[in-house]
Design a binder for these strands. Structure first.
Lengths: 211, 211
DNA sequence: AGGGTGGGTGAGCAAGCGCTTAGCGTTCCC
DNA sequence: GGGAACGCTAAGCGCTTGCTCACCCACCCT
């Protein structure tokens, strides 16, 4: 249903999942999990959306939880990649923070179906898979914190509580996945721009630091 | 388990639910829903936590969904009450925004168990119950928007996009329920203070408007 | 031509689900 | 003191769940 997701940011999602049948099942699972939640989704529903019989799922995945894990892993990898690319880029702290928030939010809005599963179904993962994902999330936190610390050190930002503000910034971005709707009047680009502006205000960024 | 919730802000939660057995079941349901999600929680689990047999649940509630609806309704009423009390209070726009965010966030942190159910299990409600709750949420949105509009009109705030910023402020506050943990090092009061500061920055509040 | 291989199906199992029903003990009122 | 009313339980019904198994068929290499 969400075919608009197929070609965003010039990359084809789930292209890393092969063979074709496994990818179709995974895409079906993303849609179903996002719509009804992991626990409310049945394996029959997933297989049905992919145009297959219930048993076909178990040729490509051992359990329903493995499907969620694969989705969560790929999604977190992508989200972390977007964030660290911006965080480790060139430019002053304000520019990097702007880029990080803008692209992170744009991804959460454009891929809100995937993002919803990735961000809100963490508790449904098996303990060992959950801790693997939590490690990735800590890296996201570190990336944002790095920008804030740099900005404070350079005198660009005024942030009394760096860990708390880091948490708030990430929380703000992530929650986009919950409320964003294609039926709404904002495009992912617009939300990204709005949020980048709001976050720069939150950190007290000076228009031009020392020029 | 979360007995610390029993007496916060000087009011006893769920005191409006009678008789005693019905309240015990409801409290058990809140804990179970918050821990595992609505769909992953069984009626046997709820009854077990309340120290009753599975059938006891159906003496006080028609269905499992009615339990969720009652929880959601009471929680939304309380959250909206907190928000509108602050929004309609006296003081300049900045003071009212500070109070609104501070108390709203404090509630989400202190009652994060309840808040998690209230904010994240909306889709599990039956359509007619869902639309009833959505109405309440629109009132929350209106309350915050009112403060922002007032602040802009008074020249206290600099907000280019009032609806978008309203959405972001509420989103930021609500997401506290997702990440807040009693194991963390912040108290609800501290998070409330931090967030009030961050939001005042987001709206470009001037330290003293015209004094 | 023919047998192996890998992706697929139809049918179904054991377990667990939400919810119901028959019945039981206590309380309360006349 | 007798009976209705109430709060609750033990047992279990009908159904759905995640998952399995026996089998099938298109394709491939020799």
């Amino acid at each position: 249903m969400d075919s608009a997701e197929d070609t965003v940011d010039g990359y084809r999602p789930w292209s890393e999942v092969t063979p074709d049948a496994a990818r179709r099942l995974l895409v079906a699972a993303v849609e179903a999990f996002a719509e009804r939640g992991y626990h409310a989704t049945t394996t029959r529903d997933i297989a049905g959306r992919a145009g297959m019989s219930p048993a076909a799922l178990y040729i490509h995945y051992k359990t329903k939880e493995e499907l969620l894990h694969r989705i969560s892993r790929i999604g977190h990898d992508k989200a972390l990649d977007i964030l660290t690319t911006a965080a480790d880029g060139s430019g002053c702290a304000a520019e990097r923070l702007d880029a990080a928030v803008r692209s992170f939010v744009r991804w959460h809005a454009a891929h809100h179906t995937t993002a919803r599963v990735v961000q809100y179904e963490l508790d449904a993962l098996a303990p060992e898979h959950r801790s693997e994902i939590v490690t990735l999330r800590r890296q996201s936190d570190a990336a944002v914190r790095r920008i804030l610390t740099d900005g404070v050190a350079a005198g660009e930002f005024d942030v009394p509580d760096v860990p708390g503000t880091t948490l708030a910034v990430l929380s703000l971005c992530i929650d986009v996945a919950r409320w964003f709707s294609v039926a709404g009047q904002r495009t992912p680009d617009e939300v990204g721009a709005l949020y980048a502006d709001l976050v720069l205000r939150m950190v007290g960024a000076r228009p031009r630091p020392q020029k």
